[in-house]
Computed example of a mutant assay.
Amino acid sequence: MSHIRLTLASTAAAIALVGCGHRMHHDHAGMQHGAMNPNAAATAPAKVSASTPTLAGGYKKVEAPATAKLYFVNLGNGATVSSPVKVVFGLSGMGVAPAGIEKAGTGHHHLLVNVNEWDANAPLPANDNFRHFGAGQTEVSLDLKPGQHTLQLVLGDQNHIPHHPIVASERITITVK
């Protein structure tokens, strides 16, 4: 019984620390990299198919808590940056696990670069526009050409399929000088 109490106390302490870390990162978003444009117009969302809990072939999608949030720690809509662009991924309400590992409450990051449309009921493709971080990475340094680019984070399960409900960041536009 004392082991259970200790585990619960440790879990509560870890959750409290994660919560504090999330607020700290969120409060500093945009201050670490790139000039922010407070007047930037909101970026239009990508066209995404409606998420279904079970796919046509019978695959049951991994559930995500409604409180899960995915966000950019160091970039915001309208940021002006230089290449290479450091992108730090933020996640609260869930954990990160490598691709291929089935563990409740976890997933791994995918960064969508200049993607206008994607399917919430299929594995995310792997290419220059759909970048996979299947080893559990939480940041990347991107070489991007000068100009405007859209970025969006999507959490995928062990098979690169978005969770149900979808866990995705807002879609932002950055300008690379």
Rank of each mutant, 00 (worst) to 15 (best):
W118N: 06
V96K: 02
N116M: 01
A46K: 07
G95I: 02
L111M: 05
I101H: 05
G58F: 11
V62A: 12
K103R: 13
V88W: 04
L75I: 12
K69M: 08
G78P: 02
T54D: 01
A41F: 03
N39P: 00
G100V: 07
L70E: 11
L112I: 08
V88C: 04
K47L: 13
P125A: 14
A79G: 08
V88K: 09
T52P: 00
T67N: 08
P38V: 14
L55P: 09
G58I: 06
P38G: 10
N121I: 12
T54C: 06
K47V: 15
V113M: 04
G57Y: 00
P84G: 13
H108P: 04
P38N: 12
H109Q: 01
G93R: 02
I101V: 15
T52W: 00
A66I: 04
T52V: 15
V113Q: 03
P38F: 11
Y71Q: 09
P65L: 07
S82Q: 15
K61H: 05
S83R: 10
A97S: 15
A41N: 10
L111I: 08
K103Y: 04
N116D: 15
A99R: 12
A42G: 10
K69I: 11
N116K: 15
N116Y: 00
E102M: 06
L111P: 03
A50S: 14
V81W: 04
I101N: 03
N121K: 11
L55W: 11
E102I: 10
N127V: 07
V96R: 01
G95A: 13
A122V: 07
T106F: 06
G107C: 08
E117K: 15
D119S: 09
P38Q: 13
N116H: 10
G93T: 08
G93F: 02
G76I: 03
S92E: 12
P53I: 00
K86A: 10
S83I: 07
A120T: 05
S51V: 14
V113D: 04
G78I: 04
S51Q: 12
V87M: 11
I101L: 14
P125Q: 13
A56F: 13
A46R: 03
P125E: 12
N121Q: 11
N129L: 05
V81R: 07
A56S: 14
S49D: 12
V113P: 04
I101W: 03
V96M: 07
G78M: 09
P65S: 13
A46T: 05
E102W: 01
N37I: 08
A79W: 05
A42F: 02
G78Y: 03
A40N: 05
L70M: 15
L91I: 04
A56Y: 02
S51G: 15
K47T: 15
G57F: 01
H110S: 03
F130L: 08
S92P: 00
P45G: 07
S92D: 12
